[in-house]
Design a protein around this nucleic acid. Structure first.
Lengths: 251, 251
DNA sequence: AGGTAGCGTGCAAAAACGTGCAAGGTCAAG
DNA sequence: CTTGACCTTGCACGTTTTTGCACGCTACCT
């Protein structure tokens, strides 16, 4: 095992488990604690993590967990969410992705709207619990903690049995050539399955995600029907997507 | 558990519950009171909290106000939840019912516990998202809004494919003759399905539910293995359940 | 006023730490 | 192909930190 690999592993563990216990890692990797400690010291010097007695913890709020991200809903996300909520018609079956932007969508659904919402995000299910006339269908499966959505074969299977009118997708990047992408492989599969179960797919896009790409490709622009973007984006920024034939909703 | 995490945990508890009781925390974390007291002393020195006899309080009045609002869970539910959490062993597959008492159970699972939690409650899934080492399996289905749990054929089907070690059930009534009951028919079906998928079933019972019955019967006392009850209940109250062969855990 | 629960201190064992060093491996110049 | 510089890794050693326990003191409650 190479040093670089080992450090990557450490950062991965930190992200997934939220902590690193030096002794535990040394057993997992069958290396001495000294080596692990050395790595931790170096990663701490690079600012990638915070060294503590016994192991390491995430360096800062930069690695902020989902709970923290949730509290600070930027205006962009609120605007995009509200605009997308207006696209929903009475009686429709709507699929809502997980994520902070779609959560804003859910919170902005009109109180007199009668519709069915399908989601794989327990957070959104809880948020819609107070809505009087919306029927909620929750997709089960293994909980992917980082995004707080269910993933896995069980989830894909459940999704395949649903026919929805419209799917609102969240992404971490949208790019004219690379298409839509996200940071987790499992999630990209789920998003594809949700697309396949919906007649139309709209992507919710806040400014920082435009012309960006993440490791895992979900689909190309030609596979979706429209995007909801922040009003502040320039004509230049959206022209490529308009040319691709997408409906542009400015929030 | 790392020292730094423990201090973070203390501050979190302080924020959520509005107070810290040293003895209580030492039981939750399975550490000596000395260690907790030392931590409290250090945090007090940093001005992060105010040390008092028996534990600690928020340093500022503004914080105390916020904390007080959060503290809505009655002591009985907290005690029963905590006692039930202690029944969980490392590596087990645990089914958690929906409800406020089981939510307390989830919140009191030791932070270093490795286990799998199966639940049909999105609320519990969200609460466990912060837990570092617990794998969460969410049961999908139609959301029954009153209790915020999934129900229906899809849920029953998903449950039937799971084999768990122990199931913690919430009820609205437990009665020596009528057995276990709840207020919704769909939920009673789900609870039966969950029982069938678990090797053992424990029922969480707060004082007001003892010797009460609701419209829909879930099962008889002979179908379950134990109950977790509040300590305040008299011997008289529990004797009927003891005679039925149930394990009684007093919280 | 007396008993109990909580407190702080000192102490010892255990765990984690940093440093220096040697064995082994890699790579490139000779 | 050999040599030497350089890096990585595990171990030994002494140091520091952490933790639980024993002891006597203090605060709180009845």
């Amino acid at each position: 095992m190479l040093t670089t690999q080992r450090k990557a592993y450490l950062l991965k563990v930190l992200k997934e488990r939220g902590e690193i216990v030096a002794k535990q890692i040394s057993e997992e990797l069958e290396l001495s604690e000294d080596t692990i400690r050395r790595d931790l010291r170096e990663l701490a010097a690079e600012g990638k993590l915070q060294r503590v007695h016994g192991g390491a913890l995430p360096s800062s709020a930069a690695m902020a967990d989902f709970a923290a991200r949730q509290q600070i809903a930027p205006n962009g996300k609120i605007a995009v969410g509200r605009a997308a909520a207006n696209l929903v018609r009475a009686g429709q079956v709507v699929i809502l992705d997980g994520g902070t932007t779609t959560l804003q969508l859910a919170k902005h659904l009109p109180l007199d709207l009668t519709a069915t919402v399908v989601t794989h995000s327990p957070t959104i299910a809880v948020a819609l619990q107070e809505h009087p006339t919306i029927e909620v269908i929750l997709i089960g499966g293994r909980l992917f903690k980082h995004s707080v959505v269910t993933v896995g074969a069980v989830a894909v299977e459940a999704i395949s049995r649903i026919r929805a009118d419209i799917y609102f997708m969240g992404v971490t990047g949208i790019h004219p050539k690379a298409g839509l992408s996200t940071g987790d492989l499992e999630e990209s599969h789920i998003k594809r399955a949700l697309m396949a179960s919906a007649a139309e797919t709209y992507v919710l896009v806040t400014a920082e995600k435009v012309n960006a790409a993440s490791p895992y490709i979900i689909a190309s622009l030609s596979d979706i029907d429209g995007v909801v973007v922040e009003k502040q984006l320039s004509q230049n920024d959206v022209s490529a997507y308009k040319r691709a034939g997408l409906t542009i909703v400015r929030a």
